[in-house]
Design a protein around this nucleic acid. Sequence first.
DNA 1: TTTTTGGTTCTGTATTTTCAGAACTTAAAA
DNA 2: TTTTAAGTTCTGAAAATACAGAACCAAAAA
Lengths: 179, 179
Amino acid sequence: MQELNPDDEYQEQKKKSMTNVQLTQKQKELIERMGVFYERHGIPPMEGRIMSLLTVCDEPELTFDQIRELLVISKSATSSALNMLLLTQRVIYKTRPGDRKRYFTSNIVEWQESFTESFQKFFGVIKIMKEALNQRTPNTPEFNGQMAEFIEFIEYLSIEFPRLYSDWSNRKTNNNKNN
Amino acid sequence: MQELNPDDEYQEQKKKSMTNVQLTQKQKELIERMGVFYERHGIPPMEGRIMSLLTVCDEPELTFDQIRELLVISKSATSSALNMLLLTQRVIYKTRPGDRKRYFTSNIVEWQESFTESFQKFFGVIKIMKEALNQRTPNTPEFNGQMAEFIEFIEYLSIEFPRLYSDWSNRKTNNNKNN
DNA sequence: TTTTTGGTTCTGTATTTTCAGAACTTAAAA
DNA sequence: TTTTAAGTTCTGAAAATACAGAACCAAAAA
């Protein structure tokens, strides 16, 4: 084998860094299991697998090609799944200066921000629920009452929920102070 | 037209009660809109439509055949959608003495019971999350820390959440007492 | 300038889902 | 006993989804 000149070494380094990350058998297995877990929650299989990969893999920041290679899938599958995951805020990416690649990360690292938001989205039920309630006949007071209560409770939650979070994070920082 | 004998009258009555319920154009429209709303949340179209029907329709208790007729769908579609909705607890049914039919209702009338349960199911994320965290390399303390925090918060929620509900229902009954 | 990198978009196929329609089932009514 | 009511289950077709593979594209590197 020939001696490598500096450039070749650099290229070699780059090539290596692309396929550097490897998965153990156990990790592959866990990714599949998490995948079906996500699937059962209405997330498409490939998106579920990518989300799982990004929390299971030792390296939390993976590039497009690393994801493609680790999961052994096509570019198109990688592209569309990643774009959907970005759209639905389940994955984010960072860039690095002088590097064209994007480094994808599970949005678990920013769950604090995204959590409240996705809950807020869930609370969107009440909008259409209210509409349904408003058009209802007055002849079913019991049913209407239950609907109204449900709506009230969701509204209550949407107010109390952020407070619950801030309580928790306050408690956490206080604990840290005392230790 | 011939005079009806008592039996015919009874049959007539039964037939009528089967097709009695009607939907206004506005209601049909709302059902479709709610349907796509549910679809966007991962619920199959027909199940979404049935759920919507059961909250929009003036009559909150509908039979198999009323649902089938109001939505103009086949028996098989009605059957499988209803069974899935029963399985996932989104719809319940009541029976009536001396009546073989089942009367289906949106589980919104029992949301108090089913809400906490479905939240509990959501909290199931933490089980597989913990597994993922446990197998992680110790070389990514920041990422692992974020994961741990996320898990902690979900666990905190699963405890605080039921309390939030009981607080709300207490506040409600107190309000009613004072009024 | 040409080449490479990091993707996106298009085309087509295999799979899955979602129904309709008809045959079947089971308990009650006639 | 036969008939009816209230569904369930089976068969199959149409539509939607999930990909692979190849062509394409735009910016950066050579």
